[in-house]
Amino acid sequence: MQLFILLIISGLASCKSGIFDNVSVYVRGLDKTVEDTILIEFDDSLAPHLQHKPSEIITIKDQFIPKLDTNSVANLTTVQNLTLARNGIRDILRGAFQNLPNLKVLNLSGNAIEEIRIGIFNELPMEDLFLDNNKISRIGYKAFSHMTLKKLFLQNNKISRWSKDWFADSSVSRLDLSFNLIEDLPPNSFHLMSKPVNDSMSLIFTGNQLKKINNDVFNGVERFQRIFLDGNLIDRLSPGTFNGVKHINVLNLNNNSLYDLNSDVLKSTQVDILMLEDNKLRCLSTDIFRMEELDIDGNPITCFCVKSWLAWRDIHSNPSIYHITNLEQECI
């Protein structure tokens, strides 16, 4: 009987597992001269295995970690760059990341995360957060609020709705939501993100399902480095779409269904580069020609329109910037 009980206990011990179960952790110092690989056989926390190790850079990828529990990745006081990519992570509980005072980059790309709850990331001091190529469809109220984030990557997920409250008092200057399922952007979508000290903001909504961009969507942010709305279903822009925006370096509207672009849409906004390739435009008013570069290939521009452009070009300086050489040749 004693032998039988001993065998049971032994069997239970051999089946013991934790959040980190036979997981290899690659650690490295910032100077890249000191590095090591640690095997965690079973444990719920990283910290005990990284004591007295060069741990400014930690990488765990291409392994099996189904979830991150409270304190799973906590008390790593020296880590600056933490990668947990392609590990099959489905769920992250509140408090999984705590006491990471020097964290700058957190990479959770290529997992199976479905929801971002409030409190998971809010107190982290990081600048770059990678959540791309997951299965995120739900984002909690103020999930990215009160953060020092500069870059947030959420591309290739399943996000279908936008909430400005996600970013209350945030400092995101580059937001990538390309290849999601977003259909609509409400007025003042980004004004809660207008408090960073950066000079301008970049928004990337490539490959969503946006059809119409309403008035005042971008109101509250004066300067944008880039607004990418290409690869959507946009057929028109309301005259007040860019109300409050003074300058956009690059506005990308390629590969949509625009059949018209009223000159009033950009009347009070300086755009340096306007990209309109592969839409349904038959003409553009010369009143809109105030940018440094206009790309308009792949539109069914009429020869009547081209001739009006040529007449405008003859009386204005720097006539070659509007990329109409091919259209001019076709209409001669």
Rank of each mutant, 00 (worst) to 15 (best):
G11L: 05
D278I: 08
L185H: 00
P300H: 02
Q155N: 11
L281F: 03
H49V: 03
A168T: 12
S320D: 05
L266H: 01
D165I: 04
M291C: 11
N219M: 13
V306H: 10
D199H: 15
E41W: 11
E35Y: 02
V221W: 12
I9P: 04
A311P: 01
N254S: 11
V27L: 03
D264E: 13
L294A: 05
I116F: 10
K164L: 15
I324L: 02
N157D: 02
K164I: 08
P48W: 15
I5V: 01
S137I: 02
Q2K: 14
G88C: 06
L106N: 01
Y141V: 03
F144T: 03
T302P: 04
I9E: 09
D184F: 09
L68P: 05
W312P: 01
R94N: 14
T33I: 01
I120S: 04
N122Q: 00
I92V: 01
I321M: 04
V34I: 11
S145W: 07
S202W: 02
I57D: 04
K150I: 10
I19L: 00
V306M: 11
D235A: 10
I296D: 06
D62F: 10
S173G: 12
P300N: 05
L237T: 07
S14T: 01
R174N: 10
T77D: 12
I332W: 12
N198L: 12
F130S: 04
S317W: 14
D165H: 14
D43M: 08
E277A: 10
T325F: 00
D295C: 15
I248W: 09
I213A: 10
M126T: 04
L68M: 09
T83K: 11
S202E: 02
Y26H: 06
V271R: 00
S320G: 02
G231F: 12
A47Y: 15
A96S: 09
I58F: 00
Q155F: 09
L129Q: 00
T77L: 13
A112Q: 14
V27S: 04
D184N: 08
I89K: 11
L149G: 05
L237D: 08
R174P: 06
I301T: 06
S173M: 15
C283G: 08
N243C: 07
I332V: 09
F130Y: 07
S317A: 14
S173T: 13
S171C: 12
Q80C: 05
A112N: 11
D21C: 05
H52S: 15
E41P: 04
I57V: 07
V27E: 00
L274I: 08
D287Y: 09
K158M: 11
I5R: 15
D69K: 10
L3F: 04
I273S: 07
D216V: 01
L203R: 07
Y322Q: 04
L258M: 02
R138T: 06
F289C: 09
K195R: 15
D230T: 10
L281D: 07
L181G: 09
V172L: 13
M193D: 11
S202M: 07
V25H: 04
S317C: 13
S194P: 03
S285L: 01
C283Q: 11
A13T: 02
L281K: 10
S285H: 00
K104L: 15
H247A: 07
M291G: 08
L266K: 06
L149T: 03
F167M: 07
